[in-house]
Simulated assay, not measured.
Amino acid sequence: MITPPYLKSGAKVGIVSPATTVSATEIEEGLKILKSWNLEPVIGENAHNVYGCFAGTDQERLEDLQKMLDDDTIKAIIFTRGGYGTIKIIDQLDFTNFKKNPKWIVGYSDITVLHSHIHTLEIETIHAVMLQGMPRATPESVASIKTALFGESLSYKIAKSQKNKFSENTVEGTLVGGNLSILFALNGSVSDIDTTGKILFFEDIDEYLYHLDKALIALKRNNKLANLKAILVGAMTNIKEDNLPYGKTDYEIVLDEVKEFDYPVYFDFPCGHQPDNQTLILGRTITITPDGNSVTVTFKN
């Protein structure tokens, strides 16, 4: 995988809204944080547009993102928020210049569309809190974005849990994934990720238990779960029952769908739609090491 250049003090970062609309007030605090890191935000022309629920028309959102992808003075693109909409423009984006001059793509949730598509180009990306969410995220989560962007060391601990399908062996592999519903939507498309021999991360929000099961079954039927090194499950936030009780919890569904495979599964990874939303470098090799009453996840530099 290709690692985009790490940021230096004074770097310009593009601010783009590829999905749901967001006001200038909603990202004001996030912009202050970027400036406190001595970064120079460059806000897309259409970043605060409104077209239904979207931040402008498909063409307006496409033009903003394409401009930032092509501008070599922009060293990272940090998204304002997720929601829905990135999948509507992904096939119209031209990554020709981006492949020649890669830069960090920073976001999560709906931005999983870009993470997955860019991983097919063999380029790393950053899964992290976006500008709208920075005021509600823990200080450690926000600080971890800077840590990743500036090339410092990243590692996290996960407490041992009865939910986990544990292994006493150290596991190493490339980390891929993102929002489970988006991975489900991309399944079988040109933006679909290759999971063979890799460590899969996923999280989700506001979905029904049956949808979680359906998404995992779809991935399994497309051979996405058979040859993994491990699974890391982040926050499963507001996962709901339908009118009829499903009969299993979210973690029981996950374990049931992978029960025939012998790799470990670790729940409660500190990442997803919650205040403790730590930064991940997707496409990066990580190690998962048993450590007493916890496991340590370390990103290789």
Results as ranks from 00 to 15, higher is better:
Ile281Glu: 05
Ala215Ile: 00
Gly178Ser: 13
Ala218Gln: 09
Asp276Met: 11
Gly178Cys: 04
Ala226Arg: 07
Leu216Asn: 06
Gly177Pro: 02
Leu255Thr: 13
Asp268Phe: 12
Lys224Pro: 09
Phe267Lys: 02
Leu228Gly: 01
Lys248Arg: 09
Asp250Trp: 07
Lys240Cys: 11
Glu207Asn: 09
Glu252Pro: 03
Lys220Met: 05
Glu257Arg: 09
Glu260His: 09
Leu255Arg: 12
Val190Cys: 02
Thr289Met: 09
Thr285Tyr: 01
Asp276Arg: 12
Ala218Trp: 03
Lys214Tyr: 12
Asp213Lys: 15
Leu244Gly: 03
Arg221Met: 07
Lys259Arg: 14
Phe269Ala: 09
Ala218Glu: 15
Phe267Cys: 11
Tyr251Gly: 06
Leu244Pro: 01
Tyr208Val: 01
Tyr246Phe: 15
Ile182Cys: 02
Leu209Asp: 08
Asp204Arg: 05
Gly197Asn: 07
Lys259Phe: 11
Gly234Leu: 10
Tyr208Leu: 11
Val258Lys: 03
Phe201Leu: 09
Val190Arg: 13
Lys198Ile: 02
Asn277Lys: 01
Gly234His: 04
Thr285His: 01
Asp192Thr: 02
Val258Cys: 08
Asn227Leu: 03
Thr237Tyr: 08
Tyr246Gly: 10
Pro275Ala: 06
Leu232Pro: 11
Tyr208Cys: 00
Tyr210His: 07
Gly247Asp: 10
Leu186Val: 02
Ile231Gly: 13
Tyr266Ser: 08
Asp268Pro: 00
Ile253Trp: 10
Gly188Leu: 01
Gly173Val: 01
His273Tyr: 07
Lys198Leu: 08
Lys214Leu: 15
Arg221Ser: 06
Pro270Leu: 10
Gly177Trp: 07
Cys271Ala: 15
Val254Met: 15
Asp204Ser: 15
Pro290Met: 03
Ile281Thr: 13
Lys224His: 11
Gly272Pro: 04
Thr249Arg: 10
